[in-house]
Amino acid sequence: MLVARDLVRPEIVEIFAEVFEHEGPLSASTSPGDVARWDSLNHVALVSMIERTFGIGLSMDEMIEIQSVGDIERLLARHGV
């Protein structure tokens, strides 16, 4: 796979636009502090969108683990996506 460290997948860009209406730049270090609508309620929507888009199921631990875009990439890699 060709995942460059500092590149964010287009699907994630799309998800952030849909869930958080976030159109700004994204990087692995983007965290809830950088995205206006990334609160605990929308976090739930983020997780369900990730599950739907990539066809995976996340545990509660994994839900809590997601604290940045980089965390999402690592999770996806772990799920073989």
Partner: peptide, 13 residues
């Protein structure tokens, strides 16, 4: 224009 330019680069090969 779908996705970002970065995504296209990933798919190239």
């Amino acid at each position: 224009n779908q996705g970002s330019g970065l995504g296209d680069k990933m798919r190239d090969d």
